[in-house]
């Protein structure tokens, strides 16, 4: 009896007690709706309609038309994610304090995320299309900014920026403002304060923000079809997976492409997080406060 009490106490100290049972419904939910379909998909990718377990993968990488979708998607997602993060920093930096109208400005900057891709795409077509306002104002031949790479790129920026901005703003608000004041009294001008104090403390947050916006951009589908060139320059990897699943009904191949998509995302995230681990990631407060 004493022994079991001691054991329960020791377990409780490690956070193992009856309250843990409350997690069961959530865990079951995750297993049922995420883990099982995921493992099922991975399994499916190793059971192609013909050939050995790896033949779907071999087929994907042997076919340039399929293989190139990885590069096409990276060419869109990496610059878009980078631009979203880089553009968020100065805007969030200006907005980190308290000022009149901050809520209104934040709302305006965040609205695009609530609009959805389709509405954004429609706006882009009307505005930037060959007969859109932008080209009517611009003298000379119309500039092609839709139904190609740039249309998708703009769409990714419009929908991804609010997301990156909100994250960066919250990371910035977590940095003790007296640190910059201290740097100022030590003779640092505004650029030095940003570069030596704020940026190093913000960098881990920027890495995380980059990863999240990259993942969003990498799985781009609607805008690649609507404002892109889905048969050519914006034939992204999700389109390839869609075609396998619903045009050719080759589910194992579609599952293979999905797995490859996940692997590429993980590689990029691993690289970014590897860089992040080299940075200072501790407290961003200036003392015992």
């Amino acid at each position: 009896m004493r022994h079991s009490t001691a054991l329960r106490h020791r377990l409780a100290e490690r956070g193992i007690d009856r309250q843990l049972l409350l997690l069961v419904p959530a865990a079951a939910f995750v297993v049922l709706l995420f883990v099982y379909p995921f493992l099922y998909g991975v399994g499916l990718s190793f059971q192609p309609e013909r050939g050995g377990p790896f033949s779907a993968y071999r087929e994907f990488f042997a076919d340039a038309y399929q293989r190139d979708t990885i590069l096409t998607t990276l060419r869109l997602a990496l610059p878009a994610a980078l631009l979203n993060v880089v553009a968020s920093v100065p805007i969030a930096y200006r907005m980190r304090g308290r000022f009149r109208g901050k809520r209104l400005l934040t709302t305006l900057l965040v609205v695009p995320v609530t609009l959805g891709t389709v509405l954004t795409a429609q706006g882009l077509l009307n505005f930037l299309g060959p007969t859109g306002w932008f080209n009517r104002i611009l003298p000379g031949d119309p500039v092609r900014l839709t139904n190609n790479y740039w249309g998708v790129f703009f769409s990714l920026v419009i929908t991804g920026f609010p997301f990156a901005f909100l994250l960066v703003l919250s990371y910035l608000s977590g940095i003790d403002p007296t640190l910059e004041r201290a740097a100022a009294t030590l003779g640092a001008g505004s650029w030095q304060r940003f570069r030596r104090i704020t940026l190093p403390l913000l960098a881990p947050g920027l890495a995380t923000t980059f990863c999240l916006t990259f993942v969003l951009a990498f799985s781009v589908f609607p805008s690649a079809v609507l404002v892109g060139d889905p048969a050519g320059s914006t034939r992204v990897i999700s389109i390839a997976a869609y075609e396998e699943a619903y045009v050719r009904y080759d589910y194992p191949m579609a599952a293979t492409i999905a797995v490859i998509m996940g692997a590429v995302e993980l590689l990029v995230i691993a690289a970014v997080l590897g860089w992040r681990s080299l940075l200072y990631t501790g407290s961003t407060a200036g003392g015992k406060g």
Partner: peptide, 20 residues
């Protein structure tokens, strides 16, 4: 003058040490 050009040293209540 802005703080960086006054040449004063300041010790803050919460110390404001650069944590990194």
């Amino acid at each position: 003058l802005p703080p960086e050009r006054r040449g004063f040293g300041m010790v803050f209540q919460n110390y404001a040490l650069f944590p990194h």
